[in-house]
Design a binder for these strands. Structure first.
Length: 443
DNA sequence: TCTGGGGTCCTAGGACCC
DNA sequence: TCTGGGGTCCTAGGACCC
């Protein structure tokens, strides 16, 4: 337990502090609009990695009835019929704009928790201003400095802040900021009664119908349920949500610097893959990328999993999905060993005649490289500067790729043609991260 | 009919999040 | 014809131990 913690019914919880959740409106779409202002006011969506489905929609696109995750082929007629604009996801751009946005928000308080590419929690205790005014200053600065419109929700817990943010987004009269901590009890109850239980953070599409069957239909109903009963009927996780809705902090988001516990690289293919050799190329590529991300967080992997599958959407094909895990002993961060292990795993699960649509490699049992671990019965010597250090080769490859661009140096096994790879067709330039793609501004 | 009583560790799968 | 890619935590059940 740290400072500021208290014991609550035998459970350590944080004492309540007002916390704000700031997030970008239709974040990916807003990033695109920064560099193409002509898109402002038009219905716009950003498509998933495979140009497969909509993963971000502007208000105008939502008004056309486009759902989150809706397949592109179902809505592409709107391009012609309703002036819809669809762009391929430009994650390089979004990540860079996210960094800038988060840095600005961080100027408004020392205790910021970046939760996703477009969301961060910021503790706002000790602010002398009215919190709504403070949040409006934050929105104004983010909008002016990076061009991203945002909304802010403020509550006594993360779950309340999420609820407030949801309300701020949905109801224009809040003007983008909703502060639950400033509301009288009665007004808070009225507001929570109007929020569907399915919109509560932590209640997904499985739990919401089960809750409604029990007569728990709104956020208020859930807040008024007995946590013990909820824990029994559902889970301790949902019971925490109940307590959080009531204003008792129960969720610990952990440190932003904590390394990932698993690293996955997977892709749907641009076309059907039948051939084992081609599948092996893709697996090698995924393993190489996963290994790179592994080294970036200074970890080793103690195990690896490979999975392959056909499309779950093709009804005339029997569903096929196969996966296998193998141990990496000793744990490694060497691309060559990881690729070799992944190829070996593939040989164990490959089946001829399947029309493969997707594959992936997952690394887990991760441990820090900063803790030296030798194999108990192995002949390993500690890796010192004797010129044969495998880590040195990996560092050199990573450094070359960092300097000259991803894929400059890679293992031959990943293939050069990569016909399985999907080529995005509607990709905007890397406006902010590539000298050759900087937008030209004429005075 | 009756068939111990704890523990721990691991894994697969389910729920959620963005 | 065409349907994303990451992550987290928790639970239940089996293997195994004494």
């Amino acid at each position: 337990m740290g400072r500021g913690d208290v014991l609550h019914q035998g459970v350590a919880v944080k004492t309540s502090r007002p916390v704000a959740l700031i997030d970008g409106n239709s974040f990916y779409c807003s990033c695109e609009r920064v560099f193409r202002p002509a898109l402002v006011g038009r219905p716009l969506i950003v498509l998933s990695n495979n140009d497969g489905c909509a993963i971000a929609r502007t208000a105008e696109a939502k008004a056309l009835g486009i759902k989150m995750g809706q397949p592109w082929f179902e809505i592409r007629h709107l391009e012609r019929d309703a002036g819809l604009v669809a762009l391929s996801a430009n994650f390089e751009l979004y990540a860079d704009i996210s960094d800038r946005m988060m840095a600005i928000i961080g100027q408004f308080g020392p205790d910021q928790h970046i939760y996703s590419i477009d969301e961060s929690f910021l503790f706002v205790d000790g602010i002398r201003d009215n919190l709504t005014d403070y949040a409006q200053q934050m929105r104004a600065r983010v909008l002016q400095w990076v061009g991203i419109p945002t909304c802010v929700g403020i509550g006594s817990t993360y779950t309340q802040a999420k609820l407030a943010n949801h309300v701020a987004k949905k109801r224009p009269h809040w003007n983008g900021v909703c502060d639950l901590t400033a509301m009288p009890r009665g007004a808070l109850a009225t507001l929570m009664r109007e929020v569907d239980v399915g919109n509560v953070w932590g209640v997904g599409p499985r739990l919401a119908p089960r809750l409604r069957e029990l007569g728990i239909a709104s956020a208020l109903d859930l807040a008024r349920a007995a946590p013990e009963a909820i824990a029994g009927e559902f889970s301790v996780v949902l019971a925490r949500t109940v307590r959080e809705l009531r204003g008792t902090p129960c969720i610990d988001l952990g440190a932003d610097t904590a390394p990932r516990k698993q690293i996955m690289t997977s892709r749907s293919f641009g076309r059907v893959v039948l051939d084992q050799a081609e599948l092996a190329e893709a697996i090698a590529e995924f393993a190489e990328r996963a290994a790179h991300r592994l080294r970036a967080q200074r970890s080793r992997a103690g195990a690896l999993q490979v999975f392959i599958r056909n499309s779950p959407f093709r009804e005339r094909e029997a569903p096929f999905s196969a996966a296998t895990s193998i141990r990496l002993t000793p744990a490694t961060q060497d691309t060559r060993q990881i690729v070799q292990a992944a190829r070996y795993a593939l040989r164990g699960i490959f089946r001829q005649g399947v029309r493969y649509a997707k594959a992936g490699v997952m690394l887990f049992d991760l441990s820090s490289v900063d803790v030296e671990q030798l194999e108990l019965f192995g002949a390993d010597e500690p890796m010192t500067g004797n010129g044969r250090d495998p880590q040195a080769l990996m560092q050199t490859i990573d450094a070359l790729n960092a300097r000259f661009g991803r894929g400059t140096v890679k293992l031959a096994g990943a293939g050069l043609a990569q016909e399985w790879r999907h080529r995005p067709e509607r990709l905007t330039p890397a406006y902010t991260t590539d000298w050759n793609q900087l937008p030209i501004v004429r005075a």
